[in-house]
């Protein structure tokens, strides 16, 4: 048995959006007690990661360190779009655009300070991602 749902959100520039609640809601709505939950987004300049959700300033550190690793320089070879788009592709590839969580007792198993975050790497945009819950 499987249940899937699309979640859309509008992001902010270099935004880190905590989507843990929405994911848990989908798992609850699916009614599946034991199984796995796959989270996937089909964008090339966005990422989905697990990190601590407690301190929002930690998310700013994440984006700043990523910016140091992959600077918004203008002379990327991929200059069909904008530099933020070119850097966004690399950041998205590094962070990954999908997650798999274990569903146990009707909830996605996450640590006490783990949160699912949707990271935006190319400016404010309308974004969407998919959550599919599959029973054992």
């Amino acid at each position: 048995m499987a249940y899937m749902e699309k979640i859309s959100l509008t992001t902010k520039f270099e935004g880190m959006h905590d989507v843990t609640k929405q994911v848990q809601e989908v798992v609850k709505k699916s009614g599946i007690q034991e199984g796995i939950c796959v989270i996937n987004c089909n964008h090339t300049t966005a990422g989905i990661i697990i990190t601590s959700f407690w301190d929002k300033r930690g998310h700013v550190d994440f984006q700043e360190e990523l910016d140091k690793l992959i600077p918004l320089r203008y002379d990327y070879h991929h200059n069909f779009d904008t530099p933020t788009d070119a850097a966004g592709h690399i950041k998205s590839a590094i962070c990954g655009t999908g997650l798999t969580l274990i569903v146990h007792e009707g909830r996605a198993m996450l640590g006490s300070s783990q949160g699912v975050l949707f990271c935006e790497f190319d400016g404010p945009r309308a974004r969407q991602f998919f959550v599919k819950v599959i029973s054992d």
Binding site: D67, P71, L72, R73, Y74, D75, P83, T84
Partner: peptide, 17 residues
């Protein structure tokens, strides 16, 4: 030099990267 100081577009000074 370019690796150490990349010509970023988000410098605070606004002349050009």
């Amino acid at each position: 030099m370019r690796r150490i100081v990349p010509a970023r577009i988000n410098f605070y000074q606004q002349e050009s990267p």
